[in-house]
Design a protein around this nucleic acid. Structure first.
Lengths: 213, 213, 213, 213
DNA sequence: AATGAATGAGCCTTCATTCAT
DNA sequence: GATGAATGAAGGCTCATTCAT
C-alpha cells in the first residue's frame, strides 16, 4: 500500500470520506462520485481501491466498528469480578458514547441505526456480530441483578429497556426530534457523563422493580 | 379523489401500496414502478394522481400518522384528571402499539424510524408535528411524577428514557437484532400487553429513583 | 405493441438496427448508443423495449434465424421422396443463399459466423438449434449417397466438406480475402446460382470418390 | 527484447500470454489486465513493452503467422517439380494442421478465423499477406488440374471449395457445432492425417468433375 | 380520466493508458 | 528498466418523469 506523491494515503482518505457520506445520506443516497470528490480523487478511485461501492460500504463498517470496539469496549476495562452494577454502568457508558460521539465513532452509530431500520442484505452478518455479544453481555448482567427466579421474558424485557434507551440516542442527530437538552449542538462531556449516570440509575431502579414485582 | 366506474379507488390503492413499499424499503430504495405494480396501475399513475414521487411520500406520511393518532391516541381515551401513572401507561400503550402493530400502523412506525435515522428534508415538519405533542405530553407527566424540584435536565433525561424504550421497538422487524422473545415472528396481543406493563413499571421505578436521588 | 406518433414501430426499428450493427461489429464492439442512434431513439430505448443489450442480442438471433428458416428452408420445398442429389442441391442452395444474401439474411450469416468463432455463452443453445438439424439432414443425405458400407468417419468427413464449403462463404464480406470472382461488390443472382451448381457438382463427385475408395 | 536477471523474458512471456487470450476471447473481449495476469506481470507491462494494446495485437499476429509459415509451409517441403496432386495434398496438409493444431499454431488459426469474421482494420494488411500467397499457390495448382480450357470462374470456385473446406475446420473449437468425430476433445494425429487424405481425395474428385463437365 | 410509449439525467463500473517512483 | 497507483473516457443500466393518445 505504497503512498504516492503528495503523501496522501488514498485508501484511508476514501474510507474516511465514505464513512462521512454514508452516515449522512445512507447507502442508496450516497453516490460514489461524491465520496471521490470529498476524497479529492477520481470517480474510478473507489473501484480501484475497493472493487465496488458495496465492498467499500462493507469496509467502512468493518473499520468503524472495530474502532468502536477498541475505543469504547463493552466492559470498559473493568476487572471481571466487578459488581453487576459497575458492569452495567460500563456497558451504558460504552453504548452512550458510541452513539453520541461527534467524531468517527458517532458516524458509525448513525450507520448502525440506519442499518437497523433498513437492513441491507450484505451487512446482516456484521450487524449480528455487533449485536450478539452486546445482548449476551447485557443478558448476563441483568440475570445477575434479577436473581435466579427471573423468567426468560423478564430478562428479555429488561434487556430491551436498557439497550433501547441507549441506541435510540443516535436519533438526536436529526434536529428537532429530541428534547432540548439533547437536541441542540454539541454535547459537553459533562452532559454525556450525567446521561450515563442517569440511564444507569434509571435502569437499575427499573430492574429492581421488576425483581420485586 | 374520484372513484372510477369499476369501483376501484386508484388514489387510495396507490396510497396503500406506497405505504407498504416505502415502509419495507425506504424512500430511495422504492421505485415508482414497484408501487404502481403493486397497485396494479400504470407507471404514470403516481405522477398523474400525486404529481411526483415526493408528493406521494408526503401523502403517505399524512395518512399514516393521522390514522395512528386516531387508532392509538396518546391519552388512550383516559379522562384528563386521571393519575399520572395511568396517563403514563396510556402513552406507553399508544407508542408500543404504534411500533409493534403488524398492520398499516406498524408500517407507519417503520417509516417513522427510518426518517429519524435519515431525515429526508421534506418530512422534517411532519416529523416535528408528531414528536412535539408527544414530548409535551410525556414531559408533563414526568414533571408531575418527579415533583416540582426536578431540574429541566432530569425531566429531559427521563423523557428520553421513556420514549427511547418505545420507539426503538420498531427495530424488531430486522431479524436477529433483538432478544428472542421479541425477535421472532408475530407477537401475541398478550405479549404486547405484558411489554406495556413492563415498560410502565420499569419507567415508574426509574423516575422514582431519579426523584429520590 | 401500440405505435406512437410518427407511425414508427420502435421495437422493430430497433431490432433491425441492432441486426445491422451486431453483424458489422460484433457483440462487444457494438454500443447500445449506436443502435439507438441508428434507430433514431433514445439511449434508454433498448432497455425499455428489450430489457438489456443481451436480451436484444438474443432477440436479433431469434428473428434473424427464424426468417432464414422461412426464406431459405433446408429442403427447398422439395417433396420428401426427391432423389438424394436433388436434396443435396437444395441444402447447398439454402446455405449458399443464407450466407451470400445481401440483405437481412446475410447479416444473420455474418452473426452466425462470428458466433462460431467466438461463442457467446448465451447463444450456445440457439446455435445448436440451428446447426443440429442441418447436420442431421446433411448426414442423412450423405449416408444415402455413400451407401450402407460407409463408416461413421466417412460420413462425418463428407459432412464437413460439404458444410464448410458453404459456411465459409460468409467470409467474403471481408475484403481481399477471397478470389476476385467472389470478393468484389455485389454478387449477381446468376453467379450465386452457378456457385450452387458448382458446390453441388464438386461435392457429389467428392462423395462418389469416397464411396469408391 | 532485453532479458532480466531472473532469466524471464517478459516481452515473450507477454506475447505468448497475449496469443492465448486473444485466441480464446478475441480482441475486444480481451483485457490488458488479463494478459498481464497470465504473464505474471504488472498492468503497465503491456504499454511499457509494446506501447499499446493494438500494437501488442499486431505483434501477436506477426509472431503467430511467421511461426505457422515455418512449421507448416504451404509446399510441405516438396520439390517444385512435384505433381499437382502431391502439391495439393501438401497445401491441404499445411492448412488442416494450422487450424487443428492444439498448441500455439492452433491459436493462430483461431485468431485468423476471428479476423475473417470481424476484420479489425489494423490487420487487413497482414491478413492479405497471408491469404494472397495461399490463393496464388492454390490457384496455380488448380489451373494445372483443370487444364488450359478452364474459365476463371471455374478456377475461383474450385479454390473456394478447397480453401473453405480447410479453414472452416477452425470452428471445431466451438463445442457442439461440428459432427462428433471432429467435435469432441483432442484429435489424434492419425485422425488429422485421415482428414488430410479425405479432403485431398474429395477435392481432386471435385476438380476432376468440374474439368469434365 | 388514464395509460402505454418514450426520454434524459444520473449512476456504477470497466479498462486502456499515464504518472511518479 | 519496471511497477503500483491513479485517471478519464465511455459504456450499460435504472428510474422518475413527460408525451401523445
Amino acid at each position: 500500500m505504497a503512498i504516492r506523491k503528495d503523501g496522501v494515503d488514498r485508501y484511508n482518505v476514501l474510507l474516511k470520506a465514505a464513512l462521512e457520506v454514508f452516515a449522512e445520506k445512507g447507502y442508496r443516497n450516497t453516490t460514489v462520485a461524491e465520496i471521490c470528490n470529498r476524497a479529492k480523487s477520481n470517480v474510478a478511485a473507489v473501484n480501484y481501491h475497493f472493487g465496488s461501492k458495496d465492498k467499500l460500504y462493507l469496509a467502512v463498517w468493518k473499520m468503524a466498528f472495530e474502532e468502536a470496539l477498541k475505543v469504547y469496549p463493552l466492559n470498559g476495562g473493568l476487572p471481571d469480578d466487578s459488581s453487576a452494577e459497575q458492569r452495567l454502568r460500563a456497558v451504558v457508558y460504552s453504548l452512550v458514547h458510541r452513539f453520541l460521539d461527534d467524531g468517527r465513532l458517532g458516524r458509525a452509530g448513525q450507520i448502525l441505526l440506519r442499518e437497523m431500520a433498513e437492513s441491507t442484505e450484505a451487512v446482516q452478518q456484521i450487524l449480528s456480530d455487533i449485536i450478539s455479544p452486546l445482548q449476551r453481555k447485557v443478558g448476563q448482567i441483568i440475570k445477575e441483578l434479577l436473581g435466579e427466579n427471573a423468567s426468560q421474558q423478564q430478562v428479555a424485557f429488561c434487556q430491551l429497556s436498557l439497550i433501547n434507551q441507549c441506541i435510540a440516542l443516535g436519533f438526536r442527530r436529526s434536529k428537532g426530534k429530541l428534547p432540548p437538552v439533547l437536541g441542540e449542538g454539541k454535547l459537553t462531556a459533562e452532559t454525556i457523563d450525567e446521561l450515563v449516570e442517569h440511564i444507569t440509575l434509571f435502569s437499575l431502579a427499573g430492574i429492581a422493580a421488576v425483581r420485586n414485582k
